[in-house]
Design a protein around this nucleic acid. Structure first.
Length: 187
DNA sequence: AACGAAGTCAACCGCTAATTT
DNA sequence: GAAATTAGCGGTTGACTTCGT
């Protein structure tokens, strides 16, 4: 992979797959200066890349504690449940799966889970439950998202609050139990 | 063994939100 | 308060790999 859209790039910004050397440069720079001001990172690290590209590379691959590949069954199950609740809010879903990135989850969904859901949908569940809108929230938003559940009084549940990362302790395992309890309560 | 189809995944693009000047 | 800049998100693309014939 070199340049995917044969961009004539006047500024000569490098595109395409990252090389080991580029990774090294980026990692080295971020270790010393921190991961902020991506435009500056891109320039000062000596990479002919745009800031966006550097950010993506760091967040998805170079950042410490990244788990790559081998999505376990329980993780997949969690993704399914969260997607049902949140729709295509990948970053939110990723935030609940330590070491996983939004891009990875999005890919995993598109390649594995969406099929699974479609198949399940054909065999058992009603269509509305399995096909979140292509863009935006699935049930959660329709059911209330922020507005809470107006149609389903049993699901008195504020998604945004529930997934508020500023709330202490939400990274632990407790939230999973809480989440599963909420799920049980769903029809 | 060769070929085409289907699947996978890294990376880019466009847009919006948030922050800074 | 307005404009400019930066960060972040989700959708999409296309190269590479695997599978089936």
């Amino acid at each position: 992979m070199t340049s995917r859209k044969s961009g004539g790039a006047r500024m000569h910004v490098h595109k395409g797959a990252w090389t080991a050397e580029e990774d090294k440069k980026l990692t080295h720079y971020i270790e010393n200066h921190g991961a902020k001001k991506w435009k500056t990172v891109a320039i000062k690290s000596g990479l002919n890349r745009c800031g966006k590209s550097c950010r993506l590379r760091w967040l998805n691959y170079l950042r410490p504690n990244i788990k790559r590949g081998n999505i376990a069954e329980d993780e997949a199950d969690l993704i399914l449940r969260l997607h049902k609740l949140l729709g295509n809010r990948w970053s939110l879903i990723a935030g609940r799966l330590p070491g996983r990135t939004d891009n990875e989850i999005k890919n995993y969904w598109n390649t594995h889970l969406s099929k699974k859901v479609t198949q399940l949908g054909k065999s058992s569940l009603p269509a509305t439950e399995n096909q979140p809108p292509k863009n935006g929230m699935a049930d959660a938003e329709q059911m209330g998202g922020n507005k809470e559940s107006e149609e389903d009084p049993e699901l008195n549940f504020d998604v945004d609050e529930f997934f508020d990362f500023s709330v202490e302790g939400t990274y632990g395992t407790e939230w999973v139990n809480k989440f599963l309890e909420v799920e049980k309560g769903m029809p």
